[in-house]
Design a protein around this nucleic acid. Sequence first.
DNA 1: CCCTGATTCGC
DNA 2: GCGAATCAGG
Length: 196
Amino acid sequence: MSWSDERVELLKKMWGEGQSASQIAKELGGVTRNAVIGKVHRLGLSNRSGSGNGAAASETPAKAKPAAKAKPAAAKAKPAAPKPEAKKPEPKEEPAPSAAASRVKAIIPAGQPLPPQPSANEIDPAALAKVSEIEKKAKRLTLMELTERTCKWPVGDPATDDFWFCGLPVQSGKPYCEAHVGVAFQPMSSRRDRKR
DNA sequence: CCCTGATTCGC
DNA sequence: GCGAATCAGG
């Protein structure tokens, strides 16, 4: 694969959007993230820290990057209210994307919170807003496309066509992306005790 | 362990 | 110019 004009443009665009090199590489196809980074440098893009070296200017993508394009996503879907438990038409049980990898470790370690039950939970509005925000950028993966490191947050109703998994990069080790970890880990504080 | 970008250097 | 290998950090 060579760096055609179009590919370079896409590279520039995505880099400008704050996409990671690996994501760009994946999108382009036929190149590794190293290739992308190398090209970025050759193009004179790259960092803003200008100095030095050694230290990677780690930037958190999906942060302060208002980009409303890239992928034409069906705009709608009700914000928030993810359904727990994806039931697929197979008599299988919980999603177990680890099939291949297996033996490594459980994808969802015991004690890991499951998605909140819509009826039995109140989630921080800010976290929810964040979620509906990122869901626009979600990869919308199917069950089979999930991997050990894609967000497994279910969106929509499994019984309808509108069902998919977030699919964004997970937050190290956890089963969900950053935003979804945010709501999944909500401490049940908003539990005002009902004084019967 | 996973990830990120940065740099080097043989091709 | 290219990108794998390596480095450095989170």
